[in-house]
Design a protein around this nucleic acid. Structure first.
Lengths: 323, 323
DNA sequence: TTGAAAGCGCTAACAC
DNA sequence: GTGTTAGCGCTTTCAA
């Protein structure tokens, strides 16, 4: 079918017209697999959620990321697929790599990641075009899109310091696990130290339920903190609930803050002071970077130092940490 | 490569072994596009969210559906892709059909749907294997998986009737738009009528914000309802918030209920009485039905009346409608 | 300016 | 029991 010669420079308008009509008449649609085979390139990119665990399946932030990812990919002429990766299950990664080697997708945006250096190394050795979304620091090998989580925490701590708080607790996933947790923790500790405040950290796993139990643990120990910061809004919702069931008044007895500014931050009682993160914008940027990575890999031309993109965040003041 | 003759009956174990070793040694991975082309069949199925709109992008129920959809599809050896369809934008459907015709996917589970009869007709005429998830009633042409939304609403109304309520309001998307809204509305009206209760319905669009404004409107009119049922938990969260800001006590002045039992139903203040819907189970069932549909279409054999699967729902009593 | 033909990597049918 | 080959539908190159 001379059809696709449409892009070919020399073709008579009337011939072009004739072919187009035939295409219309036959309801012809090119077979994408044949095209992919011939061109040896796929037009599917993958949105890969890293550190997938049961308690995070329903995390609303994923929708925002995925929806923006898809919108941008579609706009750029790419199909999308989604993958859930679990760093506790190495087999997941083998299967994922096999998927790539089978040409199921051209590259991946790894979301919600705190990828260990070893695995990061692995990814880059695989020659799989990869962009990290939410990695905490610049990578020598892969482009990274993140938000200024550190600054977000600092803004919260500063607000609380201004209001006279002395002892801040932070509910946050421990260790290097849990994506942007590192930057959030560091921002918290640095700002608290700068203001000369006492600090406690209490583990959570991002779920509301973990926020609930973490708050209970904090409150049953002495000395009690006079403000509790949560590394995300879901845990903050759990903490608010725990406070309420224990008869602790917020913000009178303790101020509580969240992080992310999800839909329900406005609807908790009291409503939640939090940090707004521009997730959609970040996802779109990640797609653009990924397409550039794919192009670099295809053309074999080296690209310099990978991009490190850090988006600004915004303090949203609501009732849970009001004056 | 005689490799794939692995499935061929007659082959000597030692030869098999030799080939397998070579595969390993060469890190060989079959090209999925070539396979798809040769077999003229794709192994990607689509999770298509119907009636996609900005205010529903972050709806947490989508994660549950998608994640279960993917898990089941993967278990059955299928890849997955996701699509957002908007019934207000017919072009979306043209693009979607083109996608199918280009063999980008083998079939689709249409979720969150109240597909109009005309469009339903269109889908079946397209010969695209399709399963409806959340359609309100049996279809003569397509398999349907739903939950007993009607019974869920009836259970809520009955509870409220037992507690002496006289005038129930329902916040729900109007008309045929909005997926399972029809069954939820009918269950509400039927049960209220059976108990001789006065009813009002007030429009919402599933978002928390719409629940908030709908509650305000209800409360500014006379007569005021003595209980407000919301067609989903998000709107209920908005209604609770509106009540709180207007100084209306829940459940003392008005009882409020939700529907779906999402993660935050437990964390609103007061916590939300609602109906639990087995979304993951429904999604898994839909995938199984879709694969059967694909098989029917491939083999050309007719299947009888399409399946209509209605899952039971459960009343979850919490504070917002407690005694 | 246009039609014809080779070949992408795989599977299934066929010859050995 | 094993190796060889045609051809899926497309793009690209080449001949007419």
């Amino acid at each position: 079918m001379s059809n696709v010669l449409n892009d070919h420079p020399s073709i008579r308008p009337q011939t072009r017209e004739r072919v187009l009509r035939a295409i219309e008449a036959l309801d012809y649609h090119p077979n994408i697999a044949a095209k992919a085979l011939r061109e040896s390139r796929v037009t599917t990119i993958c949105c890969g959620f890293y550190d997938h665990s049961p308690e995070n399946i329903a995390d609303p932030y994923r929708n925002l990321v995925q929806s923006a990812f898809m919108a941008e990919a579609t706009a750029q002429g790419y199909d999308t697929t989604t993958a859930f990766l679990n760093s506790d299950v190495p087999r997941t990664f083998d299967a994922f790599r096999a998927s790539f080697l089978q040409q199921r997708f051209a590259g991946v945006v790894l979301v919600g990641t705190s990828v260990t250096p070893e695995r990061l190394d692995l990814f880059s050795r695989w020659n799989m075009p990869t962009v990290l979304l939410d990695h905490t620091e610049p990578s020598p090998v892969l482009p990274v899109v993140t938000a200024d989580y550190r600054s977000g925490m600092e803004q919260l701590v500063t607000q609380l310091a201004l209001r006279g708080h002395q002892h801040l607790a932070l509910i946050i996933p421990p260790g290097d696990r849990g994506g942007s947790a590192v930057a959030r923790r560091e921002g918290f500790l640095a700002a608290a130290h700068r203001h000369g405040l006492q600090t406690t950290t209490e583990p959570g796993n991002w779920s509301s339920e973990s926020g609930e139990t973490a708050f209970s643990r904090l409150w049953s120990r002495t000395p009690r903190p006079d403000a509790v910061l949560c590394a995300n809004d879901r845990m903050a919702a759990g903490a608010l609930y725990a406070a309420r069931t224990m008869g602790v008044r917020v913000p009178a007895d303790v101020r509580i803050t969240g992080f992310d500014d999800f839909e329900f931050a406005r609807y908790t009682a009291p409503s939640l002071t939090t940090i707004h993160v521009p997730l959609a914008e970040m996802a779109r940027a990640a797609v653009k970077l990924l397409l550039a990575e794919i192009e670099y890999t295809r053309s074999g031309q080296p690209r310099g130092e990978p991009v490190f993109l850090k988006m600004p965040v915004t303090l949203i003041e609501r009732e849970s940490a009001a004056c």
